[in-house]
Simulated scan of single mutants.
Amino acid sequence: MKWSDLSSNWCPVARTLSVLGDRWTLLILRDCFLGMSRFEQFVESSGMTRHILADRLKRLVEAGILERKAYSDSPRRYDYVLTEKGQEIGPALMTLRDWGKKHMPVRRATSS
């Protein structure tokens, strides 16, 4: 089953994952909650390719989670800002962050 096929699945988790179910999308949302809104900021923060970022931003805008707002006409550039619907994802991201801190702590190499 493809992700796009999950949009009509009875399960709300499956339907949510059809939009948010990959690491790049969640990292974009993380960055939005950290105050980032521009394409170059997302590239720099996440390390994803420009092609992947453009695709994920388009999907998030189409899903009504982000909104594009022009900040430059020449060349045409946009800020990507969370909509009210997007803001509602915040508690889930906080839960993922807290779980990660508890169960996936950063392991640093010890110096000899």
Rank of each mutant, 00 (worst) to 15 (best):
M1N: 08
M1K: 11
S4L: 09
S4E: 15
S7K: 15
S8W: 08
S8N: 11
S8T: 14
N9S: 15
C11S: 15
C11G: 01
P12Y: 09
V13D: 06
A14S: 13
R15S: 08
T16F: 11
L17T: 01
S18D: 10
S18A: 15
V19S: 08
L20E: 05
L20S: 02
R23W: 10
R23T: 09
W24L: 10
T25I: 07
L26Y: 05
L27C: 06
L27E: 11
L29Q: 05
R30P: 00
R30C: 07
C32E: 02
C32Y: 03
F33E: 02
L34Q: 09
G35S: 05
G35D: 03
R38N: 06
F39W: 04
E40W: 01
Q41P: 04
Q41W: 03
Q41G: 12
V43M: 09
V43S: 03
E44P: 02
E44R: 12
G47P: 06
G47D: 06
G47T: 07
G47I: 04
R50P: 04
R50K: 13
I52E: 08
L53P: 03
L53W: 01
A54M: 04
D55Q: 10
R56N: 04
R59P: 00
V61H: 05
G64E: 12
L66T: 02
K69C: 06
S72R: 11
S72D: 12
S74T: 12
P75H: 06
P75K: 05
R76F: 06
R77N: 11
D79S: 11
D79L: 05
Y80K: 03
V81L: 14
V81M: 08
V81D: 05
K85D: 13
G86T: 08
L93M: 14
L93D: 08
M94R: 13
T95P: 00
G100W: 02
G100D: 08
K101A: 08
K102E: 12
K102N: 04
K102P: 00
H103W: 11
H103G: 00
H103E: 12
P105K: 13
P105I: 05
V106N: 02
V106P: 00
A109I: 14
